[in-house]
Design a protein around this nucleic acid. Structure first.
Lengths: 152, 152
DNA sequence: CGGAACACTGAGCAACTTGTCCACTCGCGG
DNA sequence: CCGCGAGTGGACAAGTTGCTCAGTGTTCCG
């Protein structure tokens, strides 16, 4: 992770469809160098993919909510996680600090639809209770770039 | 958003570096069709980008935590959001239900380093108090694909 | 019914990019 | 001082892109 690596990431983050050759021109290095850096960044796991970024909003799911789930003593996280994984509206889930707690990000078509999603989530014995928090507005959309840039 | 759109997204999500021509061969449609679908998906905002996906873990930030911030009455969210935006370790932030609350996702180099990040976040008058929850394990890594697939 | 609008096909073409070689240079550590 | 890894710059064939065009099938509307 040196300055060039950072510049490569910055450049491809800003203009993803740019191509290796054009990138090498912009950065003033040889094509093979950019190629090699990208390969290394992928190998080291820093770059995990190039997939299209999808907007849940544009897909018809404008409501985002965060659920905190209290897992019943004795019930494994695994079985709850497997249950959550089967619900498409669950976009993300973590186990968190706090006795047997999990945390999930869900989306829904509307506030009314959110009820349906929550009901579906709760349809599992391992979950004791849950708290729902609805996201009203996105102040900072997901980003990693500033972190890369800060690795000066 | 029809079946072909879904297939296009699925395919490019599975093999992002595939290229329009190869995609058209796999899907059994003309090249121009894939091109047109991708353009439309981008125009309609469903596909928001093609940037490299970066792993905060591989970047040296293995600790993820979620902060719930209670905003002081009268203090604007905006000024707090602007403050958060300046901290690279803050990856995401939302305003949420609950009187004057915000929610932020942060990363850190270690649990000790997390203290530094939190201190930095709290260095703002508009924040009354905060709760920190640390992510222990990722049960479901961020995904949107199942949602697309479910739009049968 | 006729006609317009639209999406898709299949083809062609020039310009460009990719993957893969190679020989050469440079700086660093043993 | 040699070897090693990293970068350079050049070359090549093969493949891809962006663009255009004529033709076809479907749907919708007056």
């Amino acid at each position: 992770m040196d300055v060039l690596d950072r510049k490569v990431i910055d450049l491809f983050a800003a203009e993803p469809r740019i191509g290796v050759l054009e990138a090498s021109r912009r950065l003033g290095v040889a094509r093979g160098t950019v190629q090699a850096r990208l390969d290394k960044l992928a190998d080291s796991g820093v770059i995990t993919g190039w997939g299209p970024d999808l907007s849940t909003e544009a897909l018809g799911y404008p409501v985002t909510a965060f659920l905190t789930l209290e897992i019943r003593q004795g019930a494994g996280h695994e079985t709850v996680a497997a249950h959550l994984a089967q619900i498409p509206e669950v976009l993300e889930a973590f186990t968190i600090t706090g006795a047997g707690d999990m945390w999930a990000r869900v989306v829904a078509r509307s506030n009314a639809d959110l009820q349906r999603v929550i009901d579906q989530v709760l349809r599992h014995d391992g979950i004791d209770r849950s708290t729902t928090v609805i996201a009203l507005a996105t102040q900072i959309p997901f980003r990693v770039l500033p972190l890369v840039t800060s690795l000066a």
